[in-house]
Nucleic acid binder design. Structure first.
Lengths: 196, 196
DNA sequence: TCAACTATCTATAAACA
DNA sequence: TTGTTTATAGATAGTTG
């Protein structure tokens, strides 16, 4: 039996496509995991697809949930400290976790990695008053945040009208100018893979 | 010479780590490309890391820029039409692009794929009045959008005070409730990989 | 540092249970 | 359909120029 080199083209057959999707998604997740571990780049992955009703995440849902619960118990000042010198902090923690691999189970290492990631993530997001409970599903983050902009503008606009103003020009202008400014700051070390 | 199986652990040596990072990043991008093509899942990837000063993107920057320029010239109604029946539209375009591979150069196929992706992306984002020029750096999207919420609330709050209202309770309340609601809607087929 | 090279390891397509 | 097997294609670690 000969096994041909696979042509890189859309698989029309749905069952074949699904089978390939599942295998390759698993492989891709593994690769993300490996790259993160090997090169000290913590990564969180969430994948939506027509074949999965729920998003696939890396690291594990339970790992993510445990870290969130743990972090919420910290006082606010401790949370703020996490934001300082993130790169050094991150690399030190990863090196430490890596050393611990010699005597710890793989699960424990994943916990270390997950914790580092979420402390950095929450440190960044804290600046924007985001609810950390939302962070385990970043797919919602973009969607809900944008809806929130319009919803709040509408609420404020209605509030002003109730006060007797005849038009909601300010709210209207806010909506018109909604296209966001392309700032010079960048979110450091963020990988965003978006599929539509 | 023997080549050992590589231990899955953080590479402390910086040059080794960078070499591995570059090789594996390339491999990961290729895998994303393949999964997208094979299973009809269009994907855009942007990667930040300590080793790259600029984010790495898939598809190519130029492809992305060309598509944005091209799309902006379309009338608004045509843009809105792109939002309709996205899945069917997407799959048809991918199948068509895939067929064209037989007689087109690889660059051309990538253009097709890029176009499909951006039409869908812009279709979704259009609902929120986002400036499409921002879409080539999705790292900004989360950052700037959240800043925008606070900025607009502040502007509206100030506006109301100028009208003689003594407090900005509504704006304050809006800020207090900023943690976003975990809605039931989901952004279909979105992969988000975030690294800190 | 970067670009090959290639032995070896890994992912996976197809076959089969 | 899901899981397992296995041959082959593909990725890449270590090396060389």
């Amino acid at each position: 039996m000969t096994r041909k080199k696979v042509k890189l083209a859309f698989i029309a057959n749905d069952s074949s496509s699904k089978a390939t999707y599942k295998k390759r998604k698993k492989g891709l997740m593994k690769k993300v995991n490996e790259l993160s571990t090997l090169c000290g780049i913590n990564a969180c992955a969430i994948i939506y697809s027509p074949y999965d009703s729920n998003p696939e995440v890396w690291p594990s849902n339970s790992g993510v949930q445990r870290i969130i619960s743990e972090f919420r118990t910290l006082p606010e000042m401790d949370q703020n400290k996490k934001m300082v010198d993130q790169e050094t902090f991150l690399r030190q923690r990863i090196a430490k976790a890596s050393d611990n691999l010699k005597k710890q189970r793989k699960d424990n290492l994943e916990m270390e990695m997950t914790e580092v990631m979420f402390q950095c993530l929450i440190g960044n997001m804290g600046m924007f008053n985001l609810n950390i409970m939302d962070l385990n599903d970043l797919g919602y983050l973009i969607d809900q945040c944008l809806k929130d902009v319009n919803r709040r503008i509408e609420i404020l606009g209605n509030s002003r009208m109730e006060l007797g103003e005849s038009s909601n020009n300010v709210a209207a202008e806010a909506i018109q100018t909604l296209p966001i400014i392309h700032g010079s700051a960048r979110v450091s070390r963020v990988d965003v893979h978006i599929t539509f």
